[in-house]
Design a protein around this nucleic acid. Sequence first.
DNA 1: AAAAAAT
Length: 543
Amino acid sequence: MLLSNNWNNNRNGSGGSKFGNGGGKFGGNNVSKFGGGGGRFGGSGGGFGGKKEFGGGQNMKRPNWDSVSLQPFNKDFYNPHPSVLNRSPYEVEDYRNKHEITVSGVEVPNSIQHFEEANFPDYVLQSISGQGYKEPTAIQAQGWPIAMSGKNLVGIAQTGSGKTLAYILPAMVHINNQPPIRRGDGPIALVLAPTRELAQQIQQVASDFGNTSYVRNTCIFGGAPKREQGRDLERGVEIVIATPGRLIDFLEKGTTNLQRCTYLVLDEADRMLDMGFEPQIRKIIDQIRPDRQTLMWSATWPKEVKKLAEDYLGDYIQINIGSLQLSANHNILQIVDICQEHEKENKLNVLLQEIGQNQDPGAKTIIFVETKRKVENITRNIRRYGWPAVCMHGDKTQQERDEVLYQFKQGRASILVATDVAARGLDVDGIKYVINFDYPNSSEDYIHRIGRTGRSKAKGTSYAFFTPSNSRQAKDLVSVLQEANQVVNPQLQTMADRCGGGGGGWNRSRFGNGGRGGGGSFKRGSNFGRGGGGGGHKRFNDY
DNA sequence: AAAAAAT
């Protein structure tokens, strides 16, 4: 056994009040403390009802948690390793600085620096080393001790930063500390994600680590037959990973319920809000017992996300990896070509040829296009020129989407043409080039798109065709380029100067700052401001 | 105006 058991003293030392009565168990009676109508949780009550299709909620009443007889929920699995507890504040500070970790909140546990310190049980550690992971990433180093303490957590971090593992492994530990699932029980852990592909990626990670822990999972999403998903739910699973719509469907039908759910993860919360999922998310969370642990992840920290955190997380610890300023991966060479709309097609052909000539055979390319229809057209055109292209967008059946992604991953087709459905979270190895055939609607989207390349320390190149109709975005783009130490196309600079005025509202207005619950203000890296040029921080992968 | 997400 790796785990020593003298943690009990330490825990008492930091005040038993943290966990309520000091006893680990939260029985049904304790729950009422949190529940009740006007409590701190679920304050926004019937916050749904906006959208017709999903709204209503007639079929799904919010449980009265006082009257629901809940299975006990064991929060008493906090097991911090003495070496972490005894680590000097300076060492912790130093580690956080080096990894650009900023934290806010009350009683933030020290970060770990090695897997062994996380105090995961042996079976989890074994699967970690079995998968070939060496060192925890920044988000894991700081996220694990917090998640393992049972506290609520807000993590501002990107996909590819290792955040999936940061919440899945503690989920395993959490689950294994709960009474087993019984007949008719819903899942203990629920992960909500914005897109079907992302949900499936998360499920893959959960399966990789779940097998050794005897933790079952299922992935619930639309576009696929219901039968199998429903069967999984009825049979009983510990983890459900879901996109909101289909899950609500199952909840309304009573196929599953969330009365056993004590570990909730909201992944890419900003994205889910962008996509208008807020009513659905609220509807789902209102089905989950208030004494749960909640972990919310977001790439950005706009006020909508902050509001969600305030409504549903109560007290939480916030961690932020890298600067709060949105910045592109510095491993990517960014090239911006100013042109007219009608020139694009020809330019694409030339570009593909250039790429084709000097690239290694395994290299992959993603081409981002504005609309589904244009995706189809462009794919047809470049295929006519002999390029091995496949395409993906939201009108394709899920089966087609899965198949296309598989072909692209396998390298059977090295070019993927896609709408923004593929802009975020898509984790495919070997993408060398990203071509923004149509410039996206925001710098945020741009950064996410080009982030499909240059993952885990690899180099990548991005191209963007930038037309006069995009000129409103010129200024923002220039700051992104400057921040990443890129050469700025003089024509782009001219456009940015001409379209001065307000310039790039998103990044000022959309980022609040963290800090909550009397724990001092959010500590910022030295590069926090909108400084151009100098920044040495890497947002996406300094791991 | 477009994209994503339940049927």
